[in-house]
C-alpha cells in the first residue's frame, strides 16, 4: 500500500491525455526522487497559469491580460479576422509571416459525434466579434478534415447571412510537391478546386 500523498499525485497526473496508471507512477517517482526542484517549478507554473491565464476577450486565445498582445497590437490589420481551431494553429499561421490580420481561436471544432456543438466552440462570441463593424473579411483557417470543413461551412453560412465577406484557405498540392508523389486524395481535391489562370 502506498502513502496517500503518493497515491493522490499519481491519480492527479492521470488527468493528462495519454497518461495511464503506469506512466503516471513513473512520472511521480521521477519528480519525487530525481527532480524535486523541477517538481516545485512545475507546481508553481501550474498554479501561476491557473490564476493568471484567461481567454482573451477578443480572440479567445490564452492571455494574461484581458486583451492579448496580438489583438492589442496597433500594427495589425483589424479588417481581417482569421478563424483557427487551436492555439497551435494560431502559432503556425503566425510562423508563416504572411498574415497580418487578427484571429479568433475556437478552441475546438464542430464534431457532431463527439458532442462538440456550436456552444462548445463559442460560435455566439465569434459572431459578435466578427460583427464589431471593423472586420470586413473573415478568413476560415480551420483544418481540412471533415470536422474542420463542417466548422468552416457553418461559420461561413452564419457570417455571410450577416453581410460579411468570408474566404477559405486554399487547398491543394503542397509547395515543392511533385504530382507523382502527392497522395491521391489531395490530388483529387486539387483537380476539383482547380482555378482559372
Amino acid at each position: 500500500m502506498q502513502p496517500a500523498a503518493l497515491e493522490n499525485l499519481i491519480t492527479a497526473l492521470r488527468v493528462l491525455p495519454g497518461v495511464g496508471p503506469k506512466s503516471a507512477a513513473r512520472m511521480a517517482y521521477h519528480l519525487l526522487q530525481r527532480d524535486r526542484r523541477g517538481a516545485e517549478a512545475l507546481a508553481g507554473a501550474l498554479n501561476h497559469a491557473l490564476t493568471h491565464l484567461h481567454h482573451c476577450r477578443l480572440c479567445n486565445n490564452f492571455s494574461e491580460a484581458e486583451v492579448c498582445e496580438v489583438c492589442a497590437s496597433p500594427n495589425r490589420d483589424k479588417r481581417q479576422l482569421a478563424v483557427v481551431e487551436m492555439p497551435a494553429d494560431f502559432n503556425m499561421m503566425e510562423a508563416t509571416q504572411s498574415y497580418g490580420g487578427l484571429y479568433f481561436v475556437l478552441m475546438g471544432r464542430l464534431s457532431p459525434l463527439d458532442g462538440m456543438g456550436p456552444r462548445e466552440i463559442h460560435l455566439d462570441r465569434l459572431i459578435s466579434r466578427a460583427l464589431d463593424g471593423v472586420v470586413e473579411e473573415v478568413v476560415l483557417a480551420t483544418n481540412f478534415t471533415p470536422e474542420g470543413e463542417a466548422t468552416a461551412h457553418t461559420i461561413g453560412e452564419l457570417l455571410k447571412a450577416r453581410g460579411l465577406k468570408v474566404s477559405r484557405l486554399a487547398r491543394g498540392v503542397p509547395v515543392g510537391g511533385e504530382l507523382e508523389y502527392v497522395d491521391s486524395g489531395t490530388l483529387a481535391q486539387a483537380v476539383r478546386d482547380r482555378r482559372t489562370v
Binding site: P112, L113, P146, A150, H153, S184, G185, A188
Partner: peptide
C-alpha cells in the same frame, strides 16, 4: 489505401454525412 473515385460531401450535405455515420455507429 485511398481507393479513389468518391468526392467528399460538402456543406449541408457533409452534416448529413455525419448523421449517417452516427446512425451506423
Amino acid at each position: 489505401e485511398w481507393q479513389g473515385g468518391l468526392l467528399a460531401p460538402q456543406g449541408r450535405a457533409l452534416m448529413c454525412g455525419f448523421y449517417l455515420n452516427e446512425l451506423l455507429l
